[in-house]
Design a protein around this nucleic acid. Structure first.
Lengths: 188, 188
DNA sequence: CTGCGACTAGACTGACCAGTCTAGTTCCCC
DNA sequence: GGGGAACTAGACTGGTCAGTCTAGTCGCAG
């Protein structure tokens, strides 16, 4: 029973925090979980601990695979696949809601926030850098990785965060255009 | 008297909202302004209106000038000056605090948020696109402008938002490196 | 059948807060 | 000197919320 209820609470808390931020009430979370408020406190010491648990779960959902490649065209294809997938996670409704929920609470949870960054965007940069080092022989792969990630989710994330509708360009087309610009900047 | 007090309230509200988000209490803002709570309500119908006024003021502080240029090296220098200045505003303590304050409240003020984007980052993209069209003859200047803005404040903004310390590289050096990468991608 | 641990509904405390109201002050304009 | 607009301190209402407490239910292990 115990773990089952814990899961229910965690799921309800996730959707509640995503929808209304840290301001969501514990009463509301308990109601959504179909559980008594006391049960919430049986599994989590207080609201902050519950939030940390939710935040940890949420952060993990951003990670994207990045497969190796042989010739030059395969590198491009791999990067495009990566780009499309990463944008799907980072710019999708859930990614944006996650961002909106976590960002304002960072001052309250500085250490946790740092870890979360390291396990998500930071980890992504590391993997991408490794890939670029092997395939493109980039002189500063970490820098290159950061630039590609920035182009994939810089202004476009801002637009979504500020409720601005994205342009008419298709997702794949935009990802491809960005990867090609990136590759052009990395020609020998 | 009237305007003087209005200003005091606005300034106090700005620093309060920046420090604690929309959750700041009106009592607190009035106290910081050295003013009775009633006076706040004499100038702003309610807390939401006060927040909108503050948000409008805050947003305007991001805009950066972009001066014209003649030969190729001057273009580079102009872009570097722009890059350094833009990063100073977008990534400085106040820029980050502004971001943290506004982002979670967007759902509450969708229309205002859209306008704010249009007047700041959006306007910036337009000006930059105009500049790139004239100086670099870029085929899609709006896209190029978005990519430069993304590289200037993509991953680096994320790092600051998540309390991750930025690397040891100096601000000017990083801005220069980004501009050079951008220019390399736009060679004919 | 006994005792225990997880659960339930719901009441309760203490705190905080937006917004209103009262009663009185200060200052300026007519 | 009279009137009005902006101001003051502070009390008050009605609401929300985190976290605790009570009293009781349910199922299971010994």
């Amino acid at each position: 029973m115990s773990m089952l209820h814990r899961e229910r609470v965690l799921r309800a808390a996730t959707s509640s925090f995503l929808a209304r931020g840290y301001g969501s009430s514990v009463d509301d979370i308990a109601r959504r979980a179909g559980v008594a408020k006391q049960t919430v406190y049986q599994h989590f010491a207080n609201k902050e601990e519950l939030f940390k648990a939710v935040a940890g779960d949420l952060a993990k959902r951003v990670l994207v695979k990045l497969e190796g490649a042989g010739n030059e065209n395969e590198v491009r294809q791999s990067l495009i696949r990566f780009a499309v997938e990463y944008r799907k996670r980072a710019l999708g409704a859930q990614g944006i809601a996650t961002f909106r929920t976590l960002v304002p609470e960072v001052p309250r949870f500085r250490a946790v926030a740092r870890d979360m960054y390291a396990n998500t965007a930071g980890e992504m940069v590391r993997r991408l850098a490794e890939f670029l080092k092997e395939t493109l022989d980039a002189p500063d792969p970490a820098f290159s990785a950061e630039m590609l990630m920035s182009m994939l989710a810089g202004v476009d994330r801002m637009k979504r965060l500020f409720a601005v509708l994205p342009g008419p360009e298709g997702e794949t087309a935009r990802a491809t255009r960005i990867v090609d610009l990136f590759l052009k900047a990395h020609q020998p």
